[in-house]
Design a protein around this nucleic acid. Sequence first.
DNA 1: TTAATCTAGTTGTACTCTACAGCTAGATAG
DNA 2: CTATCTAGCTGTAGAGTACAACTAGATTAA
Lengths: 149, 149
Amino acid sequence: MSDRDDSVETIQRELTAFARRSRAAAARMHPELSLVSFALLAHLEDQRGCRATDLADRFLLNKSTVSRQVADLERLGLVERRPDPHDQRARILHLTARGAAALTQVSGHRRAAFRERLADWDEADLARFAAYLLRYNTSWPSADGSSRV
Amino acid sequence: MSDRDDSVETIQRELTAFARRSRAAAARMHPELSLVSFALLAHLEDQRGCRATDLADRFLLNKSTVSRQVADLERLGLVERRPDPHDQRARILHLTARGAAALTQVSGHRRAAFRERLADWDEADLARFAAYLLRYNTSWPSADGSSRV
DNA sequence: TTAATCTAGTTGTACTCTACAGCTAGATAG
DNA sequence: CTATCTAGCTGTAGAGTACAACTAGATTAA
């Protein structure tokens, strides 16, 4: 049972260390787009547009936070708001061409950094690591629209 | 080569998602101690005391940030500053008894949360996941005192 | 020894991210 | 039609962070 606890302890410690470093690293890598902005843009691309509320749910952010983030992104010309034909209160957010380009560029930087970090891993290890992370994140208690805290 | 890229992409996406959620989750789990404060205390325990500059280096934070964080922790009675006998400019930071207790408590919460998340993993997978994370973090380009950005 | 430089830490200032509360306007249920 | 609900925005406040300027002690060079 102690091996198991050791592993859990290591996983906790290393994931925490990673989380702690991420923001600073992301800020250094692309000062123009925070981790959250990046995630918002990525989700918009992924979903081909969605409402601000969806983003708030998805990312566990207050709707006021999303409102301001989106306003910034709109000011930067990366996102545009179109009225929702089915609900006059809502606006559907879409990536603009510039937004898509910015996302692509930042994604490229990130991907390059990760690829470099993982350059000397063999393929089987990569696949297993990816699978573990997926499995871990899938069990996230309060994301992806289910139980909110 | 495409499998490899897929894996890298997944690792990037899932680690990013994890990092994004961590702060909010940590704030919900123990509002009294931010992720950074927790990390600072943990490092102090680990090292049995160190200087503020060491913390700044370690965590890629500006020394002013560390100064304020430590001042807060001292105000909360979790940390104390003792003069460094070898350098009158420096102060060695130490956990107080209360600091150690707070750390233990928060660690316990975190550990419990992680243990629950990982409850249905078998031991071999846990060990491998832990090893992968360690390997990944060890190659972190600018932590642990080596190349700064 | 003395002056120049370096280092540890603090403080002033400013910006970003975030939450909560309260608001508006449109939507839906009774 | 009124009451309630929902999507989003704004006022306000607080935490975390960085950068620049500063103080005080340490180190190096002349």
